[in-house]
Simulated assay, not measured.
Amino acid sequence: MMGVLYGIGVGPGDSKQLTLKAVEAIKEADVICLPKADKDKCRAYQIALGAVPELRYKKILSYEFEMTKDEAALEEMHKDFYQKYKALVKEGYNIGFLTIGDPTIYSTFGYIMKLAKADGIEVEIINGITSFCGSAAASGILLCEGEEDVHIISGQKDIDEALKLSGTKVIMKSGKQVAKIKEKLLALENQGEISVWAVADCGMETEQIFRGAMMIPDDSKYMLTIIVKEC
């Protein structure tokens, strides 16, 4: 009997925020997959370990993904990683793929899931608390209420048009573009059009909360979520 591939969201950073279903799936998985070669440096692993101590005794399959925008290179890395555990699933082993936040939001798991489904492998997604929900809670604000819309925006592209959308804007994956994004937000904030919050390393010991665009650091932070609300 073929095994199952589980995409397990471990939440943004606090081990106490893992869902009961995520904890159960991690405990029952025969093999755990990590999108980083060194498990001690893998945030998803460290978050899960805090809730499931026996995770340290699980068989681990890991892979170091290079940070690149080369689509062909990314595709090859995903295929290479997938091949590492494809045979195990077909032999009946259940695989748990850990991902920060939720597997359905900007996750490496999405690419792996497509390959698995194409091979007829059963896939189950186990949701986790998203970074933007965690960041809103940490900032003490609501993402939306009444008839307000919420827009999830990639900071890797031009956000000018997205900032014109009505409702709350959540900017993720700002990376090296954070200084440019900050400049645009600061201009709108100074005009009294928006209010800005940002959280780095949400839920972790290194968590930082920034109120106002001016306070957002110019340097790139991998785990930075920016929330923009209309005034």
Rank of each mutant, 00 (worst) to 15 (best):
F65G: 03
F210H: 02
K176P: 03
G146P: 10
K27E: 14
A51G: 11
P217D: 04
Q208T: 12
G96A: 01
D160T: 14
T130R: 03
C33G: 02
E122F: 02
K16L: 10
T104A: 13
L115V: 02
G96Q: 01
K58P: 10
A137D: 11
V10T: 11
S131Y: 10
Q83A: 15
K229D: 05
D14W: 06
K184M: 09
G134A: 04
L142Q: 12
M204G: 10
M2Y: 11
C231T: 14
T225A: 04
S135L: 04
I47T: 09
S131F: 10
I129V: 14
K117H: 06
K69S: 13
K173W: 05
H78P: 02
L163Q: 04
G11H: 04
V150P: 01
I126Q: 00
G212A: 07
V10Q: 08
I227D: 06
D80P: 07
T130Q: 03
E122V: 09
K117S: 08
E75R: 14
N94C: 12
I32E: 01
D102F: 06
D218W: 05
Y63S: 05
H78Y: 15
K180H: 12
A200L: 04
C231N: 14
D160M: 10
C42E: 12
A138L: 10
S62W: 07
Y106C: 04
Q46M: 15
L49P: 08
C144H: 13
E71V: 12
I8M: 07
L74K: 13
D40H: 12
E24D: 13
G128N: 02
E145K: 15
C42A: 13
